[in-house]
Design a protein around this nucleic acid. Sequence first.
RNA 1: GGGCUGGUAGCUCAGCUGGUUAGAGCGCCUGCCUUACAAGCAGGAUGUCGGGGGUUCGAGUCCCUCCCGGCCCA
Length: 923
Amino acid sequence: MPNELPKAYDPAAIEQKWAEFWVREHIFDSFAQAADDTSAKPFTMLLPPPNVTGRLHMGHMLNQTEMDILARWHRMRGEDSVWVPGTDHAGIATQMMVERQLASEGTNRKVVGRDAFLDRVWQWKAQYGGAITGQMRRLGASVDWSREYFTMDDNLSAAVTEAFVRLYEQGLIYRGSYIVNWDPVQQTAVSDLEVEHKETAGKLYSIRYPFADGSGSIVIATTRPETMLGDVAVVVNPADERYTALVGKTIKLPLVDRDIPLLADEWAKPEFGTGAVKVTPAHDPNDYETGKRHQLAELTIMDETAHIALPGSPYDGLERYAARERILADLHALGLLVEVKDHTLAVATSQRSGAVIEPRLSMQWFLKIQPLADKAIAAVEEGHIKFTPANYAKTYFEWMRNIHDWCISRQLWWGHRIPAYHCPECGTTCVSRTRPERCGSCDHAEMQQETDVLDTWFSSGLLPFTVFGWPGEQGTTATPDSARYYPTDLLVTGFDILFFWVARMIMFGTHFMLDVPMPDGSPRTLADAVPFREVYIHALVRAEDRQKMSKTKGNVIDPIEIIERFGTDAVRFTLASQASPGTDIAFSEQRTEGYRAFANKIWNAARFLFLQVERARAAGYKMRMGTGAQVTALPEITPMETRWIFARLRAVCAEVDRALKDYRFDEASNAIYQFFWGEFCDWYLELVKVRLDFPDMREGEAPIQNPETAISLAGLVGVFEASLRLLSPFMPFLTEELWHALYEGEAPAKSIALTRYPQPGDFPNDDAAVSAIATLQDLIVTVRALRKDLGVPEKEAAPILLHGDNRTLALADANRDMLARLARVSDVEFAQEPLTGPAARTGTGFDVLVQYERQIDVPAERERLTKELARLTKGLDAANRQLGNDGFLAKAPASVVEGLKKQQAETHLLHSKAQAALDALPA
RNA sequence: GGGCUGGUAGCUCAGCUGGUUAGAGCGCCUGCCUUACAAGCAGGAUGUCGGGGGUUCGAGUCCCUCCCGGCCCA
C-alpha cells in the first residue's frame, strides 16, 4: 500500500505541488482550447481584474473562492468552464507608484519626460505587476491562464481606440470646457465616482459686501471665502422678501474692487446662512450652473495645484488655505467679517490621493451617457440580467436613472491615450483610428495627439467583449471566441464597483454588442447584447470585530499569512461557509481553525479507509479502488448502513446542487460538512467497522471472502471517493491529494477537477434503510445518555432491557454488535411491558432501560424530568389549543392538521411516561 | 435630504412563498488518550427571535410604529 499518510494533515506539504501541477498541465484551459471540444456548453466568467499595483486581500480571496467554486462546479458538471483572468493598468494608482519611486530618486515625471516615464511604468509593471496573479496561481484559482490579459495589451488598446472613435462618430463623445472634480495633487480631473464626501467640521463665514453706490451692504455666507476672488455675482432667493427690494443693485466686491450684480436665483436657500450666497462659477459646480443661467463670466483664480493665480494680486501664488487665512484677516481688518460659525460640511476628496477636490473649469472629454443608460436600464428591467441579491437591481436603477455625463479624460500619462489629434496651425481637432498625416482643414503636416488619457474604467468597461476579440477583423461580425463565450454567464463582484465597472460594462455591452450579429447571422437583440446574464454581488470581508479592514486601523488580515497558518482549503471553506448573500463576513480565525480541523478529519478518514483496504488485501480480498462515478443499484446483500449512507449522499448532492444554483455557498458548504463529519464519520464509519472483519490468512489456506464485508468495503470506498469529488470545488488541494492517493497512481483522470460532479441521480435512495438507521441512532443516543446519567464508566459495558414495536426489537436483535460497539451494550433483553423508572427512557417507538446497579443521581434526574415535563406540557398545550380551535381545523391544510394530531399523540405518550418516571423517583 | 439594509443562544450567522416544541459552527460545562483523527470521541446547558401595536385559526416570518446599527447616493 503506497498510501502511508502522516497522522495529521499538513497543507503546506501538498499545496504548492498541486498549484504548480494545475498550471503546468493546463487543467483549467477551456475545453475548446485544450481538446478542441466545442460540444460542451460553455460557462463563462470574467475575473474582476485586480490592479497591477494590487496585492491580494481578503476581498479578492472571497471573490476568487466563490468564483472558483462555481467554475469548478460547472466544469465537473461537464460544462466548458472558462474563467478569464487579467489585470488592470489602473491609471492613477500605478502612476502614483512610479511617481513615488521617482521622488525617492530625487526626480519627477516632468523632468523625466513622457516617453521615458512610460518606459519606467512598463518596467515597474514587468517587475511588480505579476504579484497578484502569482498569488492567484498559489490559491489554485481555476482560471484559464492561456487567456490572461492586461488592459494595455496591444489588442485591447486597439479595441479601446475603436470604441472611442465609434462613440465619437455616433456623436456620443464631446469635448468642452466644463467644471470638473479636479485633484490638485494628481493634477487631473476625476469622475464623480472617484470623489468621496467626508463629513468634516468646518466654518461658515458671514462676509459683508458693500453696494457700489454706498447705499448699504448685504451679508453673504460661505464656507470657502478664498473663492471670493472669483465671485461674479451674489444671489438671493426670489421668494426671499428680506432682499426683494435689493435685487438688481451692484456690489463692490471687497479686496478686489470689482463690480458684481445682486441677482435673484432659486439656488439661494433662504434658510442657509444669511440667505445670500456668492457665485463663483469657475470653482463650484452649483455656482457654475447658476452662472450659466445668468450668462455670468467664469473667472478661474487658481492654477492646477490649487494655488491662487492672479498676477498682480497680493494673494497671487498663495496655496488655497493660506489664501483663505490671508483673506479672512484682511476682511477682518476692514470690518467686513461679520460672523464665523462652526459648520459641518461634506468635503469632497479624491479617492486615490486623498486630496481635497478643487472644482475646476477645464477642457475635458465627456461621454454622453443617457442613450447608453437607457439600453442598460432596459436590459435589467426586461430581465436579461439578473442580480443576486435581487435588491441590488434597485440600487442600480437608482444610479442609472440619475446618471450624469461621464468625464472620461484624465490628465495622466499612464493609460490609453485619447485618439484625437489637434492641428497646431488651425486648431482643428479630429478623432481617428490612426494618426492623420495631415490636417483635414488646413493640410498642416504635423498633427499632435491629444495628451489626455482615458479613465481606467473606460477600458475595463469593454472587457467582456474585448477579451473575446472584439472588434475582430471586420468590426461587425462575431469573432469565434465571442460567438462561443459572449454573453458571459456570470459576474461575481463586490458592490463597491457596481457603478464603476458593472454598470459601465452593461452600458458598453448593450451599446457595442447590439451591432454584432449573432453567430448564425441573425440580428442580435438586447437579450444577447448584455455582457453577462447574472451578477452575483458578494459581501464585504470585515475584521473579526466587524470593523472594516483598513490600513490606518491596522486590522488588515493578509490572506497569504492566514493560508500559511491554516491551509488554503480551510480558509476557502471558512469564507464559503460564511458567504450568505447580503451579509458581510466577519472573518473569524476560530472558525478557520474549525475548518482546518475538518480538513484533518477528512485526512484521517482517508487514513482509516486506506488501512482497511490494506487489511482486506492482507486477508485475500481483491480490492479495486475505482468504483465508478455512478451507482445505480446496490447488490441485494448490501447491509443497511451502506444503503443508508448512499441515500444520504444522494440527498446531500441534491442539497449542494440547489444551494450552488442559488449562490448559497454557506448552505452548500454546511451541507457537505454536516454530511461528511456528522454522518459519514460519526455514524457510518463506526457502524461499518462491524462489517470490516478481516481474519488473518493462514499459510496455504484459501481466503474466506464474506460478500457482506466485500460490499461494505466497496461502499465505504465509493462513498468516500464521491465525497471527495463533492468537496473538491470547496477544498481543491486536499481532495486532489487524497483522490490521487486513493487511486494509487491509476486515477481515471488527470485531476479530480476533471471528473464528474456527484449528482443525486448517481446514487440509489432507500427509505427503509434511512428509517432503520434513524431508529438505531435514536436507540444508541438514548442509551449513551442514560449510561452517562447513571454514571456507568465509559469503558464498562452494560446490558439493556428493551420494549417497543416489533420492527425496533428486530432491528436491535439483528444489530447487537453495533449496539455493543457504539453504545457499549453487553446484552439486549426484551421486555413485554413498558419500562419506567430512573434507569429507563423513552425514544421514538421504544422504551429502553440500562441495567446497572449504581443508583441514579435522584435530584439531577428529578430536575431533568421536571424540565422535560415542562417542555412536553408546553408542546401539548399548544397542540391541544390549536386542535380545539374550530378556525384552525376549518382553515389549516389537512396535512398540517394531521401532522399536529400525530405530534399531539406522541407528545401525550411521552408526557405520561415522563410523569410516571417522575412519580417513581424516590422522595 | 433620498435610497438600500440589518437587529434571532456568550460570539458569528441560518431560518424558503406565515404551519408542528426556533437551528448550525465556535465558545462553555461534564466524562473519556475507545489504535483513522485529542485539530479527536461521547453527553449536556444556553434564546422575553430589538420594544410596542396590528392582521391571521396560527407570526421569528406579513403590516404599522418606535429604538439602535450599517452601507450607498446627493
